[in-house]
Every structure is written in C-alpha cells, then in structure tokens.
Design a protein around this nucleic acid. Sequence first.
DNA 1: CGTAACGATGTG
DNA 2: CACATCGTTACG
Length: 565
Amino acid sequence: MDSEVSDMDQTPAVDNSSMEEENAPLYCICRKPDINCFMIGCDSCNEWFHGHCINVTEKMAKAIREWYCQRCQEMDPSLEIKYRSKKNREKDSELERAEKRSSPPDFKLDKRRGSKVKRSARMCGECEPCRRTEDCAQCDFCKDMKKFGGPNKIRQKCRLRQCVVRARKMLRVRDEEFSLRERRDNIMHRDRRYSDDFDGNEMELYQQYKKRNMTWGSEDEEGPVYSPVRRKKAIKVKHVKRREKKFDKKKESRRHKQKQKHKERSRHSNRVDGRQTGDLHQCLGPNCIEAARPNSKYCSEDCGMKLAANSRIYEILPQRIQQWQQSPCVAEEQGRKQLERIRREQQAARMRLAEMERRFHELEGIIARAKQQVVQQDEEVNETDGEDTDLQIFCVSCSHPINPKVALRHMERCYAKYESQTSFGSIFPTRIEGATRLFCDVYNPQSKTYCKRLQVLCPEHSRDPKVPVDEVCGCPLVRNVFEPTGEYCRVSKRKCNKHYCWEKLRRAEVDLERVRVWYKLDELFEQERNVRTAMTNRAGLLALMLHQTIQHDPLTTDLRSNKDR
DNA sequence: CGTAACGATGTG
DNA sequence: CACATCGTTACG
C-alpha cells in the first residue's frame, strides 16, 4: 500500500514541478490542481475530477444527472451513474450546468451526506476553520464587517474561518495569533489527512480508468491525457477570458521566479563553500598559535587588530603611498581640468546674471518713464483699423472664436483663468540671496508648498492691478521690430489692445532668463562639489588599501602579447 | 509581495 | 434584496 502511494505521488510529480502554486488544492485521480479544464464532481465523495483524466467530456456530462467516481462505485455498488431523459435534458441542462460542470469546483452543499459543511475552491470543508460557524469578532476582517460596526471595505471571511488548506495564505490567521510551532504542526497534520483521504489503490484505479477509456467512447476527439494543448481546449468558456490573462501573467512570473531561484542557489553555494573550507584553522594573528574561532580567521579580536595594524597599516600602506606618488594621476589631472572649466562657466554665468540684473533695472526705468507719458486723445481715430474684421482667431486656451482686436486681451485672461486652477509648488521656499522678485513663493498651507511660478506671471496668487482711467499704455515703440524709436505708445492703457500687458511680458522675459542663469549656476556648483569630493577622496586611506596601481613598464611589458598568446 | 479596496457573484 | 465572501486590481 505504501509503495502504491509513493508510486502515485511520482506520476503527477512530472507535471507538478511546473505548476506554479505549490499549495493549490489537488483534485482528481491525477492529484493535480484545477487546471482550467472541464471538471466533474462525484456526487458521493464530492471529489472533483478532470474530464480528460476519466474520459468524460463536457458534452457527455450534459446527459448525466448523477455521477459517481470509480472508487465510490466500487465501495458502494448500489451507486449508479444516472442519466437524464432526453426530454428533460434540454430543460435541465442550463440548471445543471452550473452545478455539475463548473470549474473550479464551485460551491457545493453536501446535502446528500447530511453534512452541513461546504466544500468549495476555497474551503476544504473538513478543517477546523471550515467547520467553524461563528465569526470571532476580533480579527481585522470581523471588525470590517457591518455586523461588527465596520465599514465593509475589506469584505473577507473571519480569519479564524479561513480554510487551512485552500484559503489564500494571506487571509489565514496571522502568525502573531498562533505560535509558529503550533501552526506548523497543524498544517502538517492536516496535509497528511488529506493525502490519506485519497490513499486508496489509486494507482490501480488509475490503471483501470485508463483501461476503461474505450468503454466511455471518445466522441470529442480527446487527445493524449497529459497534453497541455488539449487542456487549453477544454477550458470552460465562462471563465476563459479572465483566467487566460492570469495564466499569461503567471507564466511570466514563473520565469522570473526561476531566475531568482537560480541566483539564490548560486549565491548560497558560494557562501557555503567559503565557510566550509575555514573549519579549524590556526589564528592568522601575528605569532599566534591558537585555533581560530569558528567563522573567524582569528582567535580573538585582538589578534585581528594586531594583524591589521602590523601587516596592513605598517607594511602595506607606506608601500602603497609610495607607489601612488610614483606615477602621475590621470584622474587628478582631469579633475583639475574640469574644475577649471567649471570655474570658467561660473564666471560666464555670473556675468550673464549681472547683465540680466542690469536689464532688469533698465526695464524698470523704461516702465517708469513710460508711465509719465500723457494719453494722446486723437490716437483713438488711428486705432480703428477695421480692415481685419473678417479675420477670425481662436483662443489657444478655450478655443472660442474671438475678435482679433481683443484677441491678446482675451487669451491673456483665458490663460490666467486656467493657469490659476492648477498649482505649481515645491516644499521649499526660494532662498536666492540678492535676487529681487523672482518666484511667487506664496505658501499654500493645504499642500504645504511654496508657489514656484515667476512672480510676475502667477495668476493664481497675484491679480493684475486695476488700470486707472487716465493711465497711458506707454509701450516703447519700435521700427522694424527691433529698432527702438525712442517714442512710447500713448494710447490709453485701457483701450490699447496692441500692447496688452506689455510690462508683464517684458518683465517675465527678463525674469525667466534670470532664473535660467540661476539654475545654471546651481548646476555648476553641484558639479564643482562632485569633482572636489572625488578629488579629496582620491588616495584616501581606504582607497589606498583597497586599490593599487600596477606599473607596467611600457618598454619591458607589452600587454598585448599576453592577450594574443 | 502584501494590503486595501471594491466589483462580482452566489446564497438565503 | 441584503448579505457573505470571492477574485481582481491598484498601490506602496
């Protein structure tokens, strides 16, 4: 009997290794998990069987009303497979389909045997948790339930009622709640029971099933029993879509897992090798004759320190320092060059910054002067350039058609409207010394951020000031786009559509450039710091001890000859 | 990989 | 229809 069981275990093992879930519930004579194929349940023992293992097709099952497995029939010869009458077949088939053929084995109340315990894909029906009927009211899942005043967000069965065998591991009782040992014992015990459950002459049965294959007839061109291709064909339609996805994913992850396993294995073996060779050695300490401690090269810490001081610091280090000083350091040279370059760029950036600051003040001057202009009334006549009225413009923000005359004004406002609906912040306030009016920097207590728009351009935190009636536009007029004429637009600011918000835009232009230069400076500073750290760390104690430069004399050693040989 | 959340679905 | 609880998914 024992030998038979082990034989039985071996047969499916061929395939088991490739099945991803070690803990998936096993079914059928083949003791394999639910593999997405058509399955039929025994109405006596409630075990589920893969259709192809026992040569029952989905079509055939339609005609079956009650079905009993080989083993049950042998134990109780009165059990007979019952078929539907042709009349009822059509009617009942829909109903029965759900119960009989669902895969994985769906809910099934064991009414016939009088037991109240359910068996399902997630319930073995026999373990203590499965038999338990009351919720503990203590675990997180219970506390989530409505009846215990919870929000019903988790919606899982009480931890104490999660099946030991089939429930997903994460749902079972948490480790803290049971001592580890206790749990391990439980599981082992239960696993035994389960395989015992199916210990009968399974090999024999299997052979018999195989022999009987012909008697069932094979109308559904059932191929070889273990062909994976055929298995796919038999997947129950209802769940196919979802499950196929899952399958693909699992395949992926399995491949991944194998890789990981391999890595782990090799790492592990390395470690073991290293350890085992150092079994009982003499302490490596200078002049020490004691045995080394296990897992150490020395008999004591003292010896380790002594050796380090003697051989490493007093002997190796001076040599290394000498060696280091003998050859010129290429990296050092490169570092110096980089520093030079960085400094040059910094210089340039500072100049640019100064230039921008000058432009900044210049612009403010221009604006101040412009404000002193007086509004010229007769300009309004010239302003009526009605020749373009049939031209249509669409706002870039809201895409509404707008009058070209007010286009600038509209788009500016429209943009501001949308822009102020979003935030653009950082958790740090700006700290640039000596810079005036750059970032908005308004603090938002909700998101705990400081606004990082340009101050002049931030519609969220600053509104354009209301224009007094008598204010002049004052935009410096130009000829051929770039040549300033020295004159200013003298239309009333409220009416000037040509130069809408010109101060704002000009300021933004300057500020943007200033920000860019600051960024550049920041970047350069970072680079400088990196290069400097690299240079100071070079030829440090640790580096000297860890690395050494081998001096190849170019005259006597030809590196290539070594390789070519 | 575990957790939280939630739609889906079977049950009473 | 409410409830129980499953399977899936987004997320950290």
